[in-house]
Simulated scan of single mutants.
Amino acid sequence: MAEPAAGAGAGAGARASGGGREAQLKHTGLRPGWTTGACATAAATAAYTALLTGDFPDPVTITLPKGQTPSFALAVESRTGATATAGIVKDAGDDPDVTHGALVRATVRLLPAGSGVVFRAGPGVGTVTRPGLPLEVGEPAINPVPRQMMRDHVALVAARHGGTGDAEITVSIDDGEEIARSTWNPRLGILGGLSVLGTTGIVVPYSCSAWIDSIRRGVDVARAAGRTHVAGCTGSTSEKTVVSVYGLPEDALLDMGDFAGAVLKYVRRHPVERLTVCGGFAKLSKLAAGHLDLHSARSQVDKGFLAELARTGGADAALVAEIAAANTGLAALRLCEAAGVPLGDLVATAARDEALTVLRGAPVAVDVICVDRAGVVVGRSGVA
């Protein structure tokens, strides 16, 4: 679900007034960027303005939901009769966004008075094919906030230049169908291209908001499909394991990555009957120890915690000391396997209990599966 041009485009030319973007830069040391929704809004605003006035504003300035007023340089502009197209190169700032550098186009066509604003998916923008998303099946994958931004800006331009505010907006993204293959869109049932995303218009570097939003949409799609058992997996290896164990379909699999907390908190608010958490032993040992973000930059394997778990499972003092001094979590696991101490099961059970704590009594049965790097199951909890 992550959000992609030519030349300098908006990547070099987009600027925000009021110091909002510059303030973020000073605070984080990273350069924020713009969502596909902001780029599509700017492109639609420029194209509609050209239809009413004969000229494309370049740069074109829009107002974001929180009041920032960025200006975008146009990379593409063309007009034929009652149709105009403008294009903006997406600049995601310092975020590792797969759509950074993509050319986002909006083609606007005038409609008869009373038609309102109609949205279409052009090449590279997907179409919704499954229920559970905030858009109806068959709709172009242009999310509600970007739609409202475009409606608002069409209305402003119409009021300023004497238009009716009735227009068809077709959004397209160059190479969007190919880029979408590296996003969650196919699994969520968004086919044919990318989603036009954004709630604030601004991409905050490394906020991981797109990934977490994809987790939430994955839960929504699974629930809408009637799935009663879903699995949060840390990666492709754990996905394969959980499919082999439970035979779950693709739309019941949540690409959790390091965001265990995001899965648990959303399932707490939107329960399913059963949740399996499956991942690498070391990562899930962090969940067992109370960490909800499993990324190595934000949490570490606690060998002292593993040593204490092993002690409760029958490890003698010498083994406990060896575990506490082990180089890695996997090394600690191997020591316990050699001694017949079920550290994998103990970690899985502790991780399940931590998950239940986060779920706060939500009606969700939970189990945990720990795997090694080859996908071999090295620990399982019971279902609780």
Results as ranks from 00 to 15, higher is better:
329 G>K: 10
354 E>L: 00
326 A>N: 13
353 D>L: 09
350 A>D: 01
328 T>I: 12
341 V>A: 12
327 N>R: 15
349 T>M: 00
333 L>Q: 03
358 V>E: 13
351 A>G: 13
331 A>N: 14
351 A>V: 12
338 A>V: 02
344 G>V: 04
339 A>Y: 08
352 R>D: 03
328 T>M: 13
354 E>W: 00
351 A>F: 11
358 V>G: 10
327 N>A: 15
343 L>Y: 05
337 E>G: 07
344 G>F: 04
341 V>W: 06
342 P>G: 05
339 A>P: 11
340 G>P: 10
348 A>H: 01
346 L>F: 08
341 V>S: 08
327 N>V: 15
332 A>C: 11
340 G>L: 10
354 E>G: 00
354 E>Q: 12
339 A>K: 09
343 L>M: 12
331 A>M: 12
330 L>H: 08
339 A>V: 08
357 T>E: 09
352 R>F: 05
345 D>C: 02
330 L>C: 00
355 A>F: 03
347 V>R: 05
346 L>A: 06
331 A>G: 13
336 C>M: 13
342 P>T: 03
350 A>P: 05
332 A>P: 06
356 L>D: 01
356 L>S: 00
346 L>W: 02
338 A>G: 14
341 V>Y: 09
341 V>R: 04
354 E>D: 00
354 E>H: 07
334 R>S: 13
347 V>S: 07
348 A>Y: 02
349 T>E: 05
347 V>E: 09
346 L>H: 04
344 G>R: 03
338 A>T: 11
331 A>Y: 04
342 P>E: 02
330 L>W: 03
326 A>R: 08
334 R>E: 14
329 G>Y: 12
331 A>C: 12
337 E>H: 12
358 V>A: 08
340 G>S: 12
328 T>R: 11
329 G>H: 09
342 P>A: 08
328 T>V: 12
326 A>M: 14
345 D>W: 00
358 V>L: 10
331 A>V: 14
350 A>C: 04
351 A>E: 08
356 L>N: 01
333 L>S: 01
352 R>H: 04
342 P>C: 05
339 A>Q: 10
355 A>V: 04
333 L>C: 06
351 A>C: 14
331 A>H: 14
336 C>R: 11
352 R>T: 05
353 D>H: 08
329 G>P: 05
340 G>N: 06
345 D>R: 01
346 L>S: 05
345 D>I: 01
355 A>W: 02
336 C>L: 14
328 T>Q: 14
349 T>V: 01
332 A>M: 12
344 G>K: 02
357 T>I: 02
337 E>A: 13
333 L>A: 07
336 C>Y: 11
329 G>L: 09
358 V>W: 10
333 L>T: 01
337 E>I: 04
350 A>G: 05
350 A>K: 01
330 L>K: 05
331 A>F: 10
342 P>V: 05
329 G>F: 10
354 E>I: 00
358 V>D: 01
354 E>K: 10
327 N>F: 15
344 G>M: 02
349 T>D: 05
330 L>S: 06
341 V>E: 08
356 L>K: 00
345 D>E: 10
